[in-house]
Simulated assay, not measured.
Amino acid sequence: MSNDLVVSSQSAGLGQSSTVASKQFLTFRIGAEEYGIDILKVQEIRSYEAPTRIAHAPHFVKGVVNLRGVIVPIMDMRLRLGTDAQYNAFTVTIVLNVGNRVLGMVVDSVSDVLELPVDQIKPAPEMGAAIDSRHVTGLGKVGERILILLDIEGMVASPEFGLAD
């Protein structure tokens, strides 16, 4: 798996280099799909540890962990999206800072950090899916890979997600 994405552009055949705006994404897998979230929302990546369960929590909230004195809710994004949740050596928790809260998101595995030029991010098509298309900021193509780019902050804050205050 490649950790490098080379970005260069030439302007209209003049041979002059131009700066292309780009964004960095942490990429991760849930089932067969690969997703990306804004790297600035990521606090850390931790190996999965079983959280302390909380009564009457939504089915996808696995519980809470104590992270250096901060109680962090842990949601299993795989369960939230209706996919199979197998826990193995590759299962990780991505600790996020979204809005005014810290939360953990369990995924199958983390791939890498990619820098995508803004012009390589295409709008997401409108269709029914497990993720409301309002929370998909676009699709990024890197080689043969298609990344589903998520607005994780908007997703977590949405009433449909069930974690809104």
Score class of each variant (00 low, 15 high):
M1V: 11
M1T: 09
S2I: 06
S2V: 06
N3F: 09
N3T: 12
V6T: 10
S8I: 08
S8V: 10
S9F: 04
Q10Y: 02
Q10W: 08
S11D: 06
L14R: 06
G15V: 02
Q16I: 08
S17L: 09
S18D: 11
V20P: 05
K23C: 07
K23Q: 14
F25C: 02
L26G: 03
I30P: 00
A32D: 13
E33A: 06
Y35R: 01
Y35A: 00
G36P: 03
I37C: 01
I39Y: 04
V42N: 01
I45T: 06
Y48I: 02
Y48S: 01
E49S: 10
P51S: 03
I54E: 04
H56C: 12
A57S: 12
P58S: 04
H59K: 05
H59F: 09
H59Y: 10
F60Q: 00
V61S: 00
K62R: 12
V65K: 03
L67V: 05
G69V: 04
V70F: 13
I71M: 05
I74Y: 00
M77W: 00
R78E: 00
L79M: 05
L81F: 00
L81M: 04
T83V: 11
A85D: 08
A85P: 07
Y87T: 14
N88P: 06
A89T: 14
V95R: 11
V95N: 12
N97V: 11
V98K: 04
V98P: 02
V98S: 13
N100P: 09
N100H: 15
L103C: 13
G104N: 07
M105F: 05
M105I: 05
V107I: 03
D108P: 02
D108N: 05
V110N: 03
S111R: 11
S111E: 12
S111W: 05
D112C: 09
V113H: 05
P117C: 13
V118W: 13
Q120H: 15
Q120S: 15
A124G: 12
P125Y: 12
P125K: 14
P125M: 13
E126Q: 15
M127C: 15
A130V: 14
R134A: 14
H135N: 08
T137Y: 10
L139C: 12
G140I: 10
G140Q: 11
K141R: 15
K141I: 15
V142I: 14
G143Y: 10
E144V: 13
R145T: 14
R145A: 09
I146V: 15
I146G: 13
L147Q: 09
L147R: 05
D151M: 05
D151T: 04
E153N: 10
E153S: 07
M155E: 07
S158T: 07
F161Q: 01
G162I: 00
G162L: 01
A164R: 13
